[in-house]
Design a protein around this nucleic acid. Sequence first.
DNA 1: TGTGAAACTGGCCGGATGGCCAGGAAATGA
DNA 2: TCATTTCCTGGCCATCCGGCCAGTTTCACA
Lengths: 123, 123
Amino acid sequence: MSEDIAPEIVLALEIDDPALADRLAALLGHIAGLRLAEPGEKAAATIVTRDPRIMPEDIALTQRELDVLALMAEGGSNKMIARQLGISVHTVKFHVGSLLDKLDATGRTDAVAHAARRGVIEL
Amino acid sequence: MSEDIAPEIVLALEIDDPALADRLAALLGHIAGLRLAEPGEKAAATIVTRDPRIMPEDIALTQRELDVLALMAEGGSNKMIARQLGISVHTVKFHVGSLLDKLDATGRTDAVAHAARRGVIEL
DNA sequence: TGTGAAACTGGCCGGATGGCCAGGAAATGA
DNA sequence: TCATTTCCTGGCCATCCGGCCAGTTTCACA
């Protein structure tokens, strides 16, 4: 290896909160082996704000609902989800119904979108 | 305020590349006013690798398909989308069909998830 | 022991979804 | 002018979805 000296890591900053962004920039601005990216520059990694996403209190989803939700996000049909979880289609529908209620969604697509928005699931 | 002395910023590290993660951890490990988050700890910000997300070249969606896609992501039914865009339900189905093809999705929920994943739409 | 929450299952049914067929209209560029 | 692309519309139909009804089991907690 030729660059065992320290190939300077370029970090990008994508923080909404101006105060936090400033403090981070100040702290990270003069560290050897590390540099903040110029606007538009390609960075090795990015510092992002951890979703202060609206998430009242996890909206209290049960474990099973989370299972179903995850498979919904993968595009699974009720039938496929039922097979995956080893339960009946009726039960899947039951959980989907609960999810639509709790997530205030109009359908499964909306439910997945809502859940993703508030960080309940990761797409 | 009692902690105006240095509210120590907690940073989380979510890097796939072990080498990069190690170097960052080493660099950031002992900076005054900054601390790396314990596993599971809530952090003020997170360092992530910049998604080299698979996005061949925007996957060439037409404007109308983007319109339909956006409304799908809002949980709109074919009927609602048709009303919104002032076109027939049949035409909406037509565009939805094209989207399923291009996004390689099994259904509208999967299509929205795929599109969100590769940055075609923003949830 | 009772009480409640969670998970599970079933039937029924109107409406939504997605795939197939067929076509027409307008704009772009060869 | 012709060809291509995009957008638009229709019918038909098997399947899926979601909401309604009803019920059972299991487990934790009072």
